[in-house]
């Protein structure tokens, strides 16, 4: 007993630095954002903020622009994540096979993910420019479109552009996670199925997919959370209007541009809750699946 308690004491001792760091970098900023969201703090004078209760949230909930931003963000996640999952899965299945030059291809696939988003978004912005962009030039020459398209200016098209560039950028991440999952699958099931003469399609749907599901769910959680707080890509690629604004951009606009720290924090808190809600949903789904399988 004595030994047990001293063991647990040692464990706490070893964990303290880690917990402290977590508190400083995660819990404290979060707590402070919660506190600020209930005040009328402004950037130029944070120390003299007044407690104003839920007024920021009441303003936020009646602001059509906020709900526009929420809709934009949810739509962005709903379109980009499934595309990335399907494409990523396809790429992962290909890369899982043994063929010549596989190592090189695996490395090459990661390039879009390795470039910082700001850089690649800027790059795409130039390539997609309506007058001197290379993409319009190519498409016009190929006869695919009659006239250059305003990829980043038209409200509907710029949304499509943002989703496409995001798919380009993050499919490699999805592929990599799923590839790791594929490689960890027990080979004996596949061998047994092959011996029994099960068709490839059946193997995929009955063995590969169920076994891969936990990995897939983790990959989806990562991507969805990333998509819900998307900022840089949209910030660079859109024309700065409310048609493509996401929750993060809305929060930043009020927090940084308008120096309205209290209101911006309220938006950030709501963003936090949306993300938390989605996470809980996913984790529940994952747990049900795992239980169901067992």
């Amino acid at each position: 007993m004595q030994q047990h308690s001293s063991l647990s004491k040692t464990a706490w001792l070893f964990m303290t630095p880690c917990l402290l760091v977590l508190f400083v970098v995660a819990a404290w900023p979060l707590l402070r954002t919660f506190m600020l969201s209930l005040t009328n703090a402004r950037l130029e004078d944070i120390t003299h903020a007044q407690w104003i209760g839920s007024a920021n949230f009441r303003d936020l909930f009646v602001d059509a622009e906020w709900w526009g931003a929420v809709t934009n963000t949810l739509l962005f996640a709903a379109f980009s994540v499934p595309c990335e999952a399907i494409l990523g899965l396809m790429i992962a299945l290909v890369l899982h096979k043994t063929f010549k030059g596989r190592g090189l291809l695996r490395a090459a696939v990661l390039v879009p993910w390795a470039i910082p988003t700001i850089v690649s978004a800027r790059m795409w912005g130039w390539m997609l420019h309506d007058v001197y962009g290379i993409i319009n030039e190519l498409l016009v020459r190929l006869g695919a479109i009659a006239a250059p398209l305003p990829w980043t200016a038209s409200p509907t098209l710029s949304f499509v552009t943002i989703v496409l560039v995001d798919v380009w950028k993050t499919t490699p991440f999805m592929a990599l996670l799923l590839l790791a999952g594929l490689q960890a699958l027990p080979q004996d099931c596949f061998e047994a199925a092959l011996v029994d003469g099960v068709s490839r399609k059946r193997i995929f749907f009955r063995i590969t997919m169920p076994l891969l599901r936990p990995t897939l769910i983790i990959a989806l959680i990562f991507r969805t959370l990333d998509a819900l707080r998307v900022f840089d890509l949209v910030y660079i690629l859109s024309s700065g209007d409310s048609n493509t604004e996401t929750m993060s951009i809305y929060a930043r606009r009020h927090f940084v541009d308008y120096a309205n720290v209290g209101y911006g924090s309220a938006a950030a808190v709501c963003l936090f809750f949306v993300v938390a809600l989605v996470t809980v949903f996913y984790i529940n789904m994952g747990r049900r699946n795992i239980l169901g399988d067992a």
Binding site: H129, D130, P148, P150, T152, A153, S154, S158, S239, D241
Partner: peptide, 9 residues
Amino acid sequence: TTSPMGVLS
């Protein structure tokens, strides 16, 4: 008419 939609960016 005289300005491209692209001016919005």
